[in-house]
């Protein structure tokens, strides 16, 4: 069930990125001067999947991480994810905490004041602009909404020349609170992207965290956790820098 949920999330994300679902731009850049120079950013707690995942994606050229995974592979994937969860737990690693810390630190470094705000969200779905419009009571200039589609370890195939590397897929949008039902910024950041995607900000993976077989991750849990930590950190920084 978890697999299908994640596949649905990634499918929705891919549809959004490739623009085949609705005629909208996959990326909308932030123009600070033309957005009224917002200073206080309301950060909604990022939506992050509860557990790390370890897919072997199959995608189309130009797309992002693929979605078609055979049933037999799904069983192996489930085993990998159980193992990854054990590693995460035993090393007391929280992707969500690392990611959140990185975002806040980078926003502050960019000159923003960050105010954590509590808004109800529907799972990993982005918050609608209409929900924020007119919410001057929040005491912020704009609201930053971030959703993580997935994180963990991914391999391009099961062959030895396609090692497991950390990955993160995260989307962000900046919404105004002044009453306009619009988006000031929208983008997706992918750490370790597949198939040369042109409509997402991408971060090439750190070659230090290559694991030829999944067993190598299990044999080097500390290094594996460090790899995920670096991915969380760099993805958080890249997302926050979209507000430059």
């Amino acid at each position: 069930m978890k697999f299908y949920k994640l596949a649905a999330v990634m499918g929705g994300l891919a549809a959004t990125i490739t623009g085949c679902a609705t005629p909208s731009n996959p990326e909308l850049p932030f123009d600070r001067a033309q957005s009224g120079n917002p200073h206080v950013i309301g950060l909604v707690k990022p939506a992050v999947p509860e557990h790390a995942s370890a897919p072997i994606p199959v995608g189309s050229a130009g797309g992002i991480a693929g979605l078609l995974i055979a049933g037999t592979v799904a069983v192996m994937r489930s085993n990998r994810e159980s193992s990854l969860e054990t590693i995460v737990q035993s090393n007391h690693f929280s992707f969500a905490d690392q990611f959140h810390t990185s975002i806040v630190a980078t926003l502050v470094a960019e000159g923003y004041t960050v105010k954590e705000i509590d808004l109800k969200r529907d799972g990993l779905k982005p918050i609608s602009a209409a929900t924020i419009a007119g919410r001057n009571d929040l005491g912020v200039d704009a609201v930053l909404d971030i959703s993580v589609g997935g994180y963990g370890y991914v391999a391009a195939s099961q062959s030895d020349d396609a090692p497991y590397r950390p990955y993160v897929i995260a989307s962000a949008q900046l919404l105004p609170v002044g009453g306009a039902d619009t988006v000031l910024m929208k983008d997706t950041v992918v750490y370790n992207p597949f198939n040369n995607p042109k409509s997402v900000v991408s971060i090439p993976p750190d070659p230090q965290y290559n694991f030829v077989h999944f067993g190598d991750i299990e044999a080097n849990p500390t290094s594996a956790v460090q790899g995920m930590s670096v991915a969380a950190d760099q993805t958080g920084q890249a997302l926050a820098r979209l507000l430059r």
Binding site: P29, D31, P193, N196, P197, K198, S199, S202, I203, A238
Partner: peptide
């Protein structure tokens, strides 16, 4: 340079017209 970011293997700046 900080206005450009990797998009796949390309370096891209995406900007709104003024």
């Amino acid at each position: 340079g900080d206005g450009f970011s990797f998009h796949g293997i390309s370096l891209t700046a995406l900007l709104r017209s003024r």
